[in-house]
């Protein structure tokens, strides 16, 4: 019908390559490493750097699905409560005589069910927002954890269970290996598969996605279930590291996770951002916490820092988007 040729090969552009938010995060990590090593002469060695990850990686598993959720323009603030509930159920199951391996399975199942329930409510009742659904279940899940264990703690796990929180494979902490492995998988899934493309489509325009044959409800269900499952994995590592659990564990984890995702450059307006950014942000916040711990900065100041980091990174992303919009309309 026509003779027009349309270009379909894009030249590599150094400018585009270096204008990515991820470089900013890498610079931040370098800055934090410099700061940490000036604070403590013991920081800058292989053991210390890898061991540090054991202190902050537990909640980072939730970052993976949270990136997907926030790209879809949704939010899940019930993940901290899901961690608590699945951890408590695992401990109670074990102490009721269930073998530990089975107890871990139950833990993962409970987490996944919590996430599935969130997703189900969202998909079934279209006019309910994720804020109200996960706010309700946030209270509900932790409430159930309290019903089960009241104000007691539960522990006494077998020795081998401490491997999750404390164990090494060779010289590398097990948690780091699992995290990096999952990181690779999640990066590939989000960036290179149909499923990932559908997530971006839903976040950018849910109606057009549906009209294009994207199974919006199914994608949402899967992603929210994943969030629950990852929260349960967090519960396993956290419980293993602490040796026992209580209903108030993982309090405010949702905030840390959302802060990491926002710092990773994922826009709360949906449809934008990369998994890699959020993974780098995990290390930014993690090493920052660890470094401040080295000089005995109290935990409360960390609260302030994470809160400010969250607000600043969202502000920067918002202003960047506004700037881009202005540029476009003035053309």
């Amino acid at each position: 019908m026509s003779t027009r040729t349309i270009n379909h090969i894009q030249d590599f552009s150094w400018k585009r390559f270096f204008l990515q938010w991820e470089w900013m995060l890498i610079l931040l990590i370098i800055a934090i490493f410099t700061m940490n090593s000036s604070l403590s002469p013991y920081f800058l060695n292989y053991i210390s750097i890898t061991d540090a990850t054991m202190t902050f990686l537990d909640k980072a598993f939730i970052v993976f699905p949270m990136v997907m959720i926030m790209i879809m323009r949704e939010i899940d603030i019930s993940v901290g409560s899901t961690v608590a509930l699945s951890s408590v159920v695992m401990a109670v199951a074990y102490n009721a005589g269930v073998p530990m391996v089975l107890a871990i399975m139950i833990c993962l199942l409970v987490g996944a069910l919590c996430g599935l329930f969130n997703g189900f409510l969202l998909v079934k009742y279209k006019e309910l927002s994720a804020v109200i659904v996960t706010l309700s279940t946030m209270i509900l899940y932790r409430g159930i954890a309290y019903m089960i264990l009241e104000n007691q703690s539960s522990g006494g796990f077998p020795m081998w269970f401490s491997f999750f929180g404390w164990g090494y494979v060779g010289t590398i902490p097990f948690i780091l290996i699992l995290f990096l492995l999952l990181a690779v998988i999640f990066v590939l899934v989000l960036q290179k598969t149909i499923f990932g493309r559908h997530i971006y489509a839903i976040g950018s325009n849910p109606i057009a996605s549906r009209f294009s044959g994207v199974k919006v409800d199914r994608v949402k269900l899967i992603v929210f279930t994943l969030a629950g499952l990852m929260a349960a994995i967090t519960a396993v590592f956290l419980t293993s590291r602490m040796g026992s659990t209580r209903p108030n564990v993982a309090n405010m984890y949702e905030l840390d996770v959302i802060a990491m995702v926002a710092l990773g450059g994922i826009s709360t307006a949906g449809g934008k951002g990369k998994m890699l950014g959020a993974i780098l942000a995990v290390f930014v916040i993690g090493y920052l916490q660890y470094g401040l711990g080295l000089i005995n900065v109290p935990a409360q100041s960390l609260l302030v820092i994470i809160g400010l980091l969250l607000i600043i990174s969202v502000t920067v992303t918002n202003l960047r988007m506004k700037g881009k919009l202005k540029k476009k309309t003035s053309n």
């Binding site: 603030i77 405010m252 809160g307 400010l308």
Partner: peptide, 12 residues
Amino acid sequence: IASLGLMNVFRG
């Protein structure tokens, strides 16, 4: 998100 961040700041 804004109030979640500020919650931490004020609490700290």
